[in-house]
């Protein structure tokens, strides 16, 4: 019952922020005019702005935020480590590398889903590497070290690919791929990301019971009838699909999957399974809020989402490291 209250509260928060995101922008339309134009399509310029510019941006914020929150919660549940986060352990960075390679080689233009598929491949490689390096029980030290190495390599290779591009603008775009932004994304981005994001959500939502059982460790979970191989497969593909597709359209946005599960864990009684839907909604709310904030703070500078996330997330990350430092040594 308490879970029901929590989820509806978070749902209402997401809805309110979604509305706020739709009403935020440099063209100062009134709320009534904006929503009327959005729903009826009347008022040429207003309708164009609402339907083609602000609506896809708000929808993407929900898709990306929910994907990152959900993936963070699932990875943490599986590795039983609150430091596991797609951005910090290099999954997002590798997805960005995959996307950049697809864009610069022209593969992305060959068919509609090539871009998210390439990003998915990148994140898949990173998740598999992390699981292989950190072992079944994600020890903090190996997890963080492996994450640093994978992030650094992915970042360097992304930079290399962009440097080799014949396009003079590409070089300066490393910052987008590393810090993420939703500015001027269109419905094209919504459609190419949607199938993979949906697949990721479906797979990850089915790991809840297995993650709960893993609270007792691998042996106990297996003896409770949980198929660990299947669980691992759902986690790996689910995370890669959700994070990969999100990164392909919005760049790598860090810390969402760290901050959101950390804040919500006490509210779900620590249960990893219950944390999944709560983190998905919480992630959506956080990215929506951050995307509204970047438009308020520096309206004409395309402030990157990752900058805001790091300002909130990095201190929390340090706090978590401080708390688990005994386990680190």
């Amino acid at each position: 019952m308490r879970q029901g209250v929590l989820l509806s509260t978070l749902g209402a928060l997401v809805a309110a922020l979604f509305l706020l995101s739709l009403l935020t922008g440099p063209a100062g339309f009134g709320p009534g005019e904006s929503l009327h134009a959005l729903l009826t399509g009347q008022g040429e310029a207003v309708a164009l702005v609402m339907r083609e510019i602000r609506l896809p941006r708000a929808i993407l914020a929900v898709m990306v935020g929910a994907s990152l929150g959900l993936s963070g919660a699932a990875l943490q549940g599986y590795l039983r480590n609150p430091l596991a986060e797609p951005g910090l352990i290099g999954v997002s960075g590798s997805a960005a590398l995959g996307a950049v390679i697809a864009l610069q080689t022209g593969v992305a233009a060959s068919f509609a889903l090539a871009l998210p598929l390439a990003a998915l491949t990148g994140s898949l490689v990173a998740v598999l590497l992390i699981l292989a390096l950190a072992g079944p029980r994600g020890e903090s030290l190996t997890l963080i070290l492996a994450g640093i190495a994978i992030s650094a390599l992915a970042g360097a290779l992304t930079s290399l690919v962009l440097n080799l591009s014949p396009n003079p603008f590409a070089v300066s775009e490393t910052v987008f791929w590393m810090l993420g932004s939703l500015a001027d994304r269109s419905f094209r981005h919504v459609w190419i990301a949607l199938p993979f994001v949906a697949l990721g959500w479906f797979l990850l939502s089915r790991t809840a019971r297995g993650l709960d059982a893993l609270t007792l460790g691998e042996d106990a979970a297996a003896s409770l009838g949980i198929g660990l191989t299947r669980l691992r497969l759902m986690l790996v593909i689910g995370t890669a699909a959700a994070v990969g597709a999100s990164t392909a359209v919005a760049g790598a946005i860090g810390f969402v999957g760290l901050v959101v599960p950390h804040l919500l864990r006490p509210l779900v009684g620590g249960q990893p399974g219950r944390l999944l839907p709560a983190s998905a909604l919480g992630g959506a709310a956080m990215v929506l809020a951050a995307d509204v904030a970047v438009r308020f703070i520096l309206p004409d500078r395309d402030l990157k989402l990752g900058v805001l996330m790091a300002l909130v997330g990095a201190p929390l990350f340090l706090h978590l490291i401080y708390k688990t430092r005994r386990q680190l040594t």
């Binding site: 039983r80 893993l214 609270t215 007792l216 460790g217 042996d219 106990a220 864990r265 006490p266 009684g269 620590g270 249960q271 990893p272």
Partner: peptide, 9 residues
């Protein structure tokens, strides 16, 4: 090994 990974009730 007495593993309790999360602060569950």
């Amino acid at each position: 090994s007495r593993e309790i990974a999360w602060p569950v009730a």
